[in-house]
Design a protein around this nucleic acid. Sequence first.
DNA 1: TCATACTCCTAAATCGTTATAGGAAACGAG
DNA 2: CTCGTTTCCTATAACGATTTAGGAGTATGA
Lengths: 346, 346
Amino acid sequence: MSDMAAEDPPPPQVEERPEKPTLKTIARRTGLAVATVSRALADAPDLRTDTKALVRRVADELGYVPNRAGLRLRTGRTQVISLVMSTEHDMMNNTARLISSLAGTLRETPFHLNVSYFFPGEDALRSIQHIVEMGLADAVIFNQTQPADPRVAWLMAQRFPFATHGRTHWAGQHAWADFDNRAFGAIAVHKLARAGRRRIVVIAPPLNQNYAQDMVAGVMQAGAETGAEVRVLPDVSSDAASAVVQAGMALALAEGVDGLVCASTNSAMASVAALEAHGLRLGREIDLVAKEAIPFLTLFRREIIAIREDVARAGSVLARAAIRAIREPEALPLQDLEVPQDDQDH
Amino acid sequence: MSDMAAEDPPPPQVEERPEKPTLKTIARRTGLAVATVSRALADAPDLRTDTKALVRRVADELGYVPNRAGLRLRTGRTQVISLVMSTEHDMMNNTARLISSLAGTLRETPFHLNVSYFFPGEDALRSIQHIVEMGLADAVIFNQTQPADPRVAWLMAQRFPFATHGRTHWAGQHAWADFDNRAFGAIAVHKLARAGRRRIVVIAPPLNQNYAQDMVAGVMQAGAETGAEVRVLPDVSSDAASAVVQAGMALALAEGVDGLVCASTNSAMASVAALEAHGLRLGREIDLVAKEAIPFLTLFRREIIAIREDVARAGSVLARAAIRAIREPEALPLQDLEVPQDDQDH
DNA sequence: TCATACTCCTAAATCGTTATAGGAAACGAG
DNA sequence: CTCGTTTCCTATAACGATTTAGGAGTATGA
């Protein structure tokens, strides 16, 4: 008998289910009109308190849940929050954590999480315009912000609710969650300096990204403070990381580099491969500081100095920020900056 | 000026957009009734061919897209496919690949991808029942199937469309995409045997999972064929992987193990940490075969023998399978088995 | 010529919700 | 007793789609 052999199907006990309660059901049960029931559940001020209490009690008894299609058709509200991701830079499961955290935060709310991607070569703005113009969501969340991100500009002009993973030039005016990459860069260089490293190379993410610029600012500042020589080597893409980084490294290492800063698990692993190929040993001739979202690097090489980023925190903030942007458009946008601490262990 | 300083907001050019075309718009434009337009777009047989052509032409000109809320309210169809994931076993971004592949395949269809999770300790069946009973999706996709998976049994009894990542006892009767873990197990042991390894330890996923049982079957069979001694060490959870595996390894290594098979990138990295702590060297005293979804292990230790699993393929199949299950419930369910090849390099 | 059949289209109802406008009953004031 | 006010509720229309039943014309047959 092969793997594929069909065993007996499970018993087909198709119990007919009691049909879902609607406003009409509650109206019948209470003797009120549908409109009254609707307004009672919305806590309209011109209904008697005991009427509203009655309606709510019956609604609870029946397990009433508003029909999403009816609501959406009538009000235009979708109860959907749409996450629009880039497919690039998707290694080492930042993405999975972000999504699961978003979904986890949203599950206690009436909102559903829709996920879509824009692909390399596509216009990031287009996919978001599509969602807004088609009325496919009440808010959008996206990542990989640029300093003057066109998506942010457009959404602000439209007054459409959104939240970003990463800041922009307009960070004061919209909802975001971000990791303090400037602090990360500074801490990284300080740690290396304390370890006696003087010639530091930084593997930076693509410099059109906002967080890459933050990180560079941080390392440069710390370089000035510590007197270490800091050189930035921009990484063109995480996917092509190993090749690019290794080539860059080959050049850099020739000049007596003794410290490395990497923005991702990815580039850290590629860099280690390169430096070991040059006969350098971590913790001896060279030290490496890297940011990571999952505790992997220390499994990879115990000597790597890892700084953690809590992506789940960002996801949770972004979900709440999006809801707030929907419900209280005039309120102060929710913002959260995760600041890494310099524990001085190194 | 700090990072947070608000620069000038983007110009608030709120151009009023032409309102979205509906059936009514087309009806006005063509002089036909709304019902006729609807039936023309549905290609009703009792309409004149040129009428239908006219309607379709006008619809195209206007860029008509059916309103999802209207459709859903009237027909009950949501045009949503719901992915219900477990939060466990989520390392090394299988998840991210799966989701991006699902979303990528679905983008050319009218279906949207909803993502939700059930959390450790929750009943996996409940979250799916909720979706079905609330009418929140037209199909569900889920992973981590068990041989007699209660979700599969329930959905089959309900005749609700679904597709699974991983097979079950009823694999002949429902849609699924799977990796051939039995072949993987067999190939792994054969590779080790060819390298002269005789005492092999297998780090298996939790044995209640269908794929873990497949993998065990594969290694046992190959053990018998090659005469190697094969012992299975069950892994309780990927999250706790490192601790558990290291403990198990400690015991196992004491007995002269010279070959290791790991089901995931995760357990492979943990195992390497453990074996190196014992002073063993990969490719010398011991060899390690592992499955991975992203090309990382060879960066980690060049000596690891990696077998690739194409999660994107699974995602694409699952998306198409779900759509087929929705549209042609009586048709043969779509199924796809990815069989790894033994390249004999080792 | 008249009944019958066929072709092609449409009016109306419906899904579940909310907003608008207004109505019935009770109350207070003159 | 009558007239306005206030209180509390409801009828109706609308959102955008599909389905059902049927209607107006034209063609066919005896």
